[in-house]
């Protein structure tokens, strides 16, 4: 039944059938995400605003508000499938001729956060580019592949058992609408790749390295699956 629902969703059915993990949080944590003055992710957004100028993004892109809608349209295709963090790094390297901020560095997260904020509230909508088809298929295959010593796939928890509880924690449907996000468990900001690595480690599987094409493929599949849901960046999660 869930498979059919998923297939319908990938064909562009309504977003209302799906639920953000925001709904699973306590009222206090939800309030933390809603209040910009209390959301710790906004500290990284402020850092990102400063970097937007000091790292020279403004020189080409003008005001960061011009990034409205951009984050909602990733992963995209540019010579290869690419996620937003990869695009930022590519810009720094190819166009600014500087060493890009490393993946998962505070600066990289800050820039992704301020750019992501410009899409907050906008429906997730990665491009319908046929060149992305192989990566989309690979992403779905990785999502359904059992891995690790515990031999579990993403789908087994997040499709078949969403809403049930792993120990005390409700299992979300896993729609990455709020990345980069502030995780209370991390006491800091992190990307979707960080979260995927946590899950892979959790099933006792070797994670891929940061920046690996496998993560872009998984993210592409997840964003297509979340299409129509609102961007929440910077989200707060337990």
């Amino acid at each position: 039944m869930r498979r059919l629902a998923l297939a319908l969703l990938l064909l562009g059915a309504t977003a209302e059938a799906r639920e953000s993990s925001f709904a699973l949080m306590s009222p206090e944590t939800q309030a933390m995400q809603r209040e910009d003055s209390a959301n710790p992710g906004m500290l990284w957004v402020e850092e990102g605003r400063a970097l937007w100028d000091s790292a020279g993004c403004a020189g080409c892109h003008g005001d960061v508000a011009g990034m409205r809608g951009v984050a909602a349209r990733y992963p995209a295709f540019d010579a290869a499938p690419i996620d937003l963090a990869g695009r930022i790094a590519q810009c720094q390297e190819a166009r600014q001729h500087r060493t890009p901020f490393p993946r998962e560095s505070e600066e990289a997260l800050a820039l992704a956060a301020v750019i992501g904020l410009q899409s907050r509230g906008i429906p997730v909508n990665p491009p319908d580019d046929p060149r992305l088809a192989p990566a989309l298929a690979r992403g779905e295959a990785l999502y359904r592949e059992r891995r690790g010593q515990l031999d579990l796939s993403c789908a087994q928890c997040h499709d078949a058992n969403a809403g049930r509880h792993l120990a005390g924690s409700p299992i979300p449907e896993a729609h990455p609408t709020g990345y980069p996000l502030y995780r209370l468990e991390w006491q800091g900001m992190g990307s979707l790749q960080r979260r995927l690595r946590n899950c892979m480690t959790g099933v006792r599987s070797e994670p891929y390295a940061y920046g690996a094409p496998e993560y872009v493929a998984i993210e592409l599949f997840l964003m297509r699956r979340a299409a129509g849901m609102a961007v929440e960046t910077p989200a707060v999660r337990p």
Binding site: E145, R146, G148, L152, C157, A160, S205
Partner: peptide, 20 residues
């Protein structure tokens, strides 16, 4: 099943080095 196989080592994918 989602029940892990507690006494099997074949047929597993990308097991972390600590658990291989």
């Amino acid at each position: 099943t989602i029940m892990p196989s507690y006494y099997r080592t074949e047929g597993l994918v990308r097991v972390g080095p600590a658990w291989q």
